[in-house]
Design a protein around this nucleic acid. Sequence first.
DNA 1: CTCAATTTGTTCGTATGTATG
DNA 2: ACATACATACGAACAAATTGA
Lengths: 247, 247
Amino acid sequence: MPLPAPRAGTQPRYLQLYEVLRSRLEAGRWRTGETIPSIPELMAEFGTARVTVRQALEMLETEGAIRKRRGVGTTVERDLTHGRWVNLPTSLEELMATIDTIKPQVLNLELGATLPEVPIPSDERAAPSYVRMRRVHLRDDEPYCLIDLALDERIYRKRPARFRRHPVLSVLKEVRGLQVAAARQQLTIRSADVDEARHLSIETGAPVADVRRSLTDDRGVVIYAAVILYPSRSVRLDMNLLVSHKG
Amino acid sequence: MPLPAPRAGTQPRYLQLYEVLRSRLEAGRWRTGETIPSIPELMAEFGTARVTVRQALEMLETEGAIRKRRGVGTTVERDLTHGRWVNLPTSLEELMATIDTIKPQVLNLELGATLPEVPIPSDERAAPSYVRMRRVHLRDDEPYCLIDLALDERIYRKRPARFRRHPVLSVLKEVRGLQVAAARQQLTIRSADVDEARHLSIETGAPVADVRRSLTDDRGVVIYAAVILYPSRSVRLDMNLLVSHKG
DNA sequence: CTCAATTTGTTCGTATGTATG
DNA sequence: ACATACATACGAACAAATTGA
């Protein structure tokens, strides 16, 4: 009597296996040229059938990450350890130093708008009106983040064209007489909605890093607020834990 | 002619739908008692069949998040907006202030061990030997993080029992004559390995937040290093962007 | 009270994907 | 490669509860 296929999870086995093996390659468990565990070993470790292991390995081979050779084993072909991460800025300086070469693609622009849903302390208040833009940022013609931002309209009017065509924070430092008194960001992981997934070329429901930022001037007015979405696999955060907070 | 089932992605449709709807509930799109869109509306929005939508809603109903009533519609039962997040510390003070009530469960303890794979600057060096512990931290008897840590054995020997039974960093502040000169942490999102998933009661391949921390003393010796894994859905990071780095 | 519209519940048949042995 | 079992997903038709005109 054939055993029923006991599905440990919801994700197909061969994909789980693919993800795990790819993670290991990215983590550098084996060097380029080294031999990874044999198919029987992987069968034992993951408790799957031969065909299933092969299916996962085939995906990696198609990517050019590994190479299978009969009688030899499976070797690492391509170095995946330098995975392409977006390093999320953790200070205002870093944030404003964003490379100016990024060309945002504007999906949507609205004047006289309100703030997006960003956590704001009770002692801060909104500006009379904002420009609201929804944009996609591309890197190598691949979308890598989706932004819904609001900028104090009075500031926007000083350099509308530049604000439309460049990262807002990098333009902000050109504006004279602007005093940023508070800056915060909050990161959580959640599922991509249908249209969010479309803009980022990922799957609906896939995990994304949801980053919410706000900048406040010395009068307690929120001059900038944004919700930024990244495919979570491409996000990295480096934090210096020895810091003193200003203000 | 029945259309072939076009699988948009790899994750089953009903799960994608479940994730998205749950995210919307967590984001507070509808208040408790309010009616969410009808099944035909959801069918149209997501482009799925009736049964598939129902399958996703059933999962939410099982959780007690919603309630479906024939002829009436589907209403929000439980408030998911106050999701239980683990707030990741972003400074050493916060890190050391960890509540002492957490009871780690030790999976593994090894003396005379080496450092885990944590990014270390070239001007810092390892201690002669470390205690290496693998532990699971529980909250409400539910596992919420998995730690693989290394602590300078000379420091461990000063209070071995306390170091075994409590969060290491909270015990570290009791050690006299210790000068922490550098502290860093790095966060990335990746896939859970087989045994990692088992310890965290999640599925293999599910996204996890991989946090790597290190502490260095005033002589440039790495006294503590750890790889901590959280189910990524339960992680939140709040950052003050206006900081000045010490050192 | 009746009727129609809306909403969820149930059940077919069919096709395809996944996984085993 | 093959036979088998189970999961996923669609579309369609019909049933049952609720609401309001």
